[in-house]
Every structure is written in structure tokens, then in C-alpha cells.
């Protein structure tokens, strides 16, 4: 079920990216898309009755763990997302300094 929620989030983000002309709103849409994708990748590794992939002395062998590989990949994706968001916001700030607007349609007249 949660896979459908992730896909809906992804589609919402894509729609926002298509329709918004405001730089900040585009970055927010990109982040919504990214959250949807991350939830989807995590959901690929989920098993019913699976436990977190952490070994401890109280858990015996033969237990059912969830797949740890998607979690490790999403950890990477989150960090890259932070980097791209920071860079995008920095570009948005410098755009606002030059044109005094965040809207892509209203800029272009000034040189």
C-alpha cells in the first residue's frame, strides 16, 4: 500500500515541477519527488514481520530481517538531496538578488 503513496507523492512533485514557474516552488516540488522516490526504494526491501537489520545478542539466528541494501542506498540519496537542495537555494537567492523576483516569467527584462 505504501508504494502507492510513494508513487502519488512522486506524481505530485512531477506535476508541481511542470506547472510552477516560481524557483522556490520548483525546488520544493523536487524535494517532494525525492521523498516519494526514497519511500518507494525503502518499500522495495520491506518484508512482513521483518525486523531492523541490526544483530544483537538477544536475537537468534534464522530471524527475518528487512533488506538492508535499499536503506543504505537511500542514505546516499538523502545526502545527495541535501547537497542539490542547498545548491538550488543558493542559485535562487542569487537570482533574487539580480532580478528581485523568484518567478521565471517576470525576469529577463533586466540586463
Amino acid at each position: 500500500m505504501i508504494q502507492y503513496a510513494a508513487i502519488i507523492l512522486f506524481v505530485f512533485g512531477l506535476y508541481g515541477l511542470f506547472t510552477n514557474r516560481n524557483v522556490i516552488k520548483m525546488i520544493v516540488s523536487l524535494n517532494v519527488m525525492e521523498v516519494g522516490l526514497n519511500i518507494f526504494i525503502i518499500s522495495i526491501g520491506f518484508t512482513y514481520d521483518g525486523i531492523a537489520p541490526i544483530l544483537s545478542s538477544t536475537t537468534a539466528n534464522g530471524l527475518l530481517y528487512v533488506d538492508p541494501l535499499p536503506q543504505a542506498l537511500v542514505l546516499t540519496a538523502i545526502v545527495i538531496g541535501v547537497g542539490t537542495t542547498a545548491l538550488g537555494l543558493a542559485i535562487a537567492k542569487s537570482i533574487h538578488k539580480t532580478y528581485n523576483t523568484f518567478d521565471l516569467d517576470e525576469m529577463g527584462d533586466k540586463e
Binding site: 520491506f46 518484508t47 537489520p53 544483530l55 539466528n61 533488506d67 541494501l69 543504505a72
Partner: peptide, 29 residues
């Protein structure tokens, strides 16, 4: 969703005793 069999995946080998003893980290992630 939720019907993953770890035996079909690469991740299975991370839980084998030999690999766990070699890496020594309790948190597999």
C-alpha cells in the same frame, strides 16, 4: 510489497556468519 524473499537477493550474503564475523558491525546498514 512485503513479500520479499531475501534468499533471492544480494543482501542475503550480508547476514551469513562468515561475513558478519569478518566485518564485525552489528548494524548491517
Amino acid at each position: 510489497f512485503g513479500e520479499v524473499d531475501l534468499a533471492d537477493r544480494v543482501s542475503e550474503q550480508y547476514f551469513t556468519d562468515g561475513n558478519v564475523a569478518e566485518v564485525g558491525s552489528a548494524n548491517i546498514v
